[in-house]
């Protein structure tokens, strides 16, 4: 039994090659520093302020922030964002594991926060491509936030 007929194979091969080429493009490096693309200090502060407002009105996640000190959260979020985007900052807060341990962050809550951040960036006028550069870096941190 031929598993894949010859004629069909050529077409699937083209489809796979096309897909491989497309995904290879994702390795393209952008020269612009991500912190700068987000608007530097002012941009990151605006995102942080919008983000806090989004969370405040989000019934899905607000319970997680009941005991949070908003000023402290704002400061460390800005520092962390700055560090994560190759900005000129040093993050002085606790590790993400320490800050999230015991919170039992669910998959749904994590994704709700991602949506709040997207909304915060939209309101700050951040282009979708720049948003995705940041979200991809943040996605790497997921395992430190959702303790499975």
């Amino acid at each position: 039994m031929s598993v894949i007929s010859e004629f069909s194979f050529s077409k699937s091969f083209y489809a796979l090659t096309l897909a491989a080429l497309l995904s290879a493009c994702s390795g393209t490096q952008d020269t612009e520093n991500l912190y700068t693309a987000l608007g530097g200090e002012a941009g990151v502060e605006e995102i942080a302020d919008n983000f806090i407002m989004e969370i405040a009105y989000d019934d899905r996640v607000i319970a997680y922030f009941e005991d949070a000190n908003v000023d402290r959260f704002r400061q460390f979020f800005i520092e962390h964002l700055c560090m994560l985007t190759d900005g000129p900052c040093v993050y002085t807060g606790d590790t993400l594991i320490d800050t999230h341990v015991g919170m039992n962050v669910t998959v749904a809550a994590f994704n709700a926060i991602v949506e709040d951040l997207m909304a915060a960036m939209n309101k700050a006028g951040i282009a979708i491509g720049t948003q995705n550069r940041l979200l991809a870096r943040m996605a790497e941190l997921r395992e430190q936030i959702i303790q499975m």
């Binding site: 796979l16 897909a19 497309l22 995904s23 493009c25 994702s26 393209t28 952008d30 979708i128 491509g129 720049t130 995705n132 550069r133 979200l135 991809a136 996605a139």
Partner: peptide, 15 residues
Amino acid sequence: AWIDGPFHRTSMLNV
């Protein structure tokens, strides 16, 4: 899915 895929667009491949 690659969040930051080609052209910085979220893209997906399924096989």
